[in-house]
Design a protein around this nucleic acid. Structure first.
Lengths: 206, 206
DNA sequence: GGTGGACGGAACGATAGCGTTCCAACGACT
DNA sequence: AGTCGTTGGAACGCTATCGTTCCGTCCACC
C-alpha cells in the first residue's frame, strides 16, 4: 500500500502539533468504491463493510469519516461535480433544446450514474436525507430549463404563459426514460429529433 | 385463524387421494404482504421472513409455494392485472393521447404501484428475471401506443415515418417522471395540456 | 529523534435473514 | 373412520453486516 506525500493530504484541517490528518487518497478510494458498490448492489444492498474491504481500507478509516451510510451518501453526493451547466444562447429554441439534451445525455450515459440515479429515485421515498442531498442537482436542472424558456419567450417562440413544470418534465423525462430506465441508446439523430419534437410541444404549450 | 371451505381452495391442482391443497387465502395474504413489503422496504430490503410474519403465516407455507424471492416476484408480477387496455378510437390524436395518459395515470397513481415501479426499474439491472416478468406490461403499453399512432396516421395527423420508439418515450415518460419519480400531482388539466403538447410533438416527428 | 494521529487488520457482541426441518393440529377427501 | 397433506409455529446452522474497540505500524511534523 502506497503512502502519500504531505501535499496530497486533505486540505483544510488544522494540524495541532506534529500530527497526521486523514489521508486524501484513502478518502478518494472510499468514495470511488462507495459509488461502485452502489451501482453494483443498489443503495439498500450497499454494505459499508464491503466498501472498506474493496477499497483495501480498514473499517475504522471509513467510520472515522462518516457515521453511517446515509451520511456518507449525502456527503458524497453533495460533492459530485456532475452539474448540467448552461451553455447559453444557441439562436433558436430547437438548438437550445438540443444543447440541453446533450448535456443531460452526457451525464446519464456514465455507466455508474445510470445505475445510481434510478436507484436513488427509488430510494428517496425511504431515505429523506437523500432527497435533500440531490436537491441542488434538481435546482440546477430546473434553472437551466428556465433559462432556456426565458430565451424562447424573448424570441417570441413560445408563450409567456407556458407551464414551466410540464415543460421541464417534457424536456428531461423522455431522455431519462430511454437512457437510464430502459438502458437504450441515444445517438445524435435521436437527440435532434427529440429536440424538434419537444420544440413543437413547447410552442403549443401556452 | 379462519379456515376456508373447499370451494375457496386454489383451483387447477389435482388431488391424488383424500388430500388437501394449498389454501388460496394463504396465498392471497402472502401476495398482498409481498407487495406491501416491497413498497415499504424496496426489493433489496425485502425479507421473505418478514412477509410471512406480517401475513401471519409460517415460513414453510411461503417456501412451499415459491423457491426464493426472485421466483416469487416474477410469479406474482406476471399475475398482476394492471394492464393498460386500449379503449379504441377517440376521434382525434389529442383525444386519443388524453385517453392513454389517463390510463397510464390511473395505474401510476396507485400508492403501491408508484413505489414498486421505480424500485423495479432500478432492480431490473441486477435481477434479469424481473425484466422477463415485466416484459408483457411493456409490450402491452407499446401495442397501445402503436395502435394510437396507426389511427393518427390513418387520419393523416402524423407522418407514416414517425419514429415510434421516440413517440412512445414522449407519451409515457413525462407522466411517469412526474407521478412516479417526483411524486407530484397530475390533475385533469395537466393531462389535457400534456396531450396537447405531445400531440404537437408527434405531428412534427416524421 | 520524538511525538501524535491516521493507518490496516482483526476481533467483538448483536441483529437479521436465509433456506431447511421438524412437529402437532386440522380438515377434506376416500 | 382413517388417511394424507397443508397449516402455524419453532428451531436449526449458516452467513453477513452493523458499529465499536483494540492493536502495532507508519509517517509527517516539530
Amino acid at each position: 500500500m502506497e503512502r502519500n506525500r504531505s501535499d496530497e493530504r486533505r486540505t483544510g484541517a488544522r494540524v495541532p502539533s506534529g500530527a497526521a490528518v486523514m489521508r486524501s487518497d484513502v478518502t478518494e478510494k472510499l468514495t470511488r468504491e462507495f459509488f461502485g458498490e452502489w451501482a453494483r448492489t443498489g443503495y439498500a444492498g450497499l454494505s459499508l463493510e464491503r466498501v472498506a474491504r474493496s477499497a483495501g481500507v480498514g473499517k475504522a478509516a471509513l467510520y472515522r469519516r462518516w457515521p453511517d451510510k446515509a451520511a456518507m451518501a449525502s456527503d458524497l453526493l453533495s460533492q459530485v461535480g456532475l452539474t448540467i451547466t448552461d451553455a447559453g444562447e444557441r439562436g433558436s429554441l430547437e438548438a437550445d433544446l438540443a444543447a440541453v439534451l446533450l448535456a443531460i445525455r452526457r451525464v446519464l450515459r456514465h455507466p455508474l450514474v445510470k445505475r445510481i440515479v434510478t436507484d436513488l429515485h427509488a430510494e428517496i421515498g425511504r431515505t429523506p436525507a437523500l432527497e435533500r442531498a440531490i436537491r441542488p442537482f434538481q435546482r440546477a436542472r430546473r434553472e437551466r430549463v428556465d433559462a432556456l424558456i426565458d430565451r424562447a419567450i424573448a424570441r417570441g417562440e413560445v408563450s409567456a404563459t407556458l407551464d414551466r413544470e410540464t415543460a421541464a418534465d417534457l424536456i428531461g423525462a423522455p431522455l431519462y426514460w430511454r437512457v437510464a430506465v430502459l438502458g437504450g441508446r441515444s445517438d445524435r439523430a435521436h437527440v435532434e429529433r427529440l429536440a424538434r419534437m419537444i420544440g413543437a410541444a413547447l410552442r403549443v404549450g401556452g
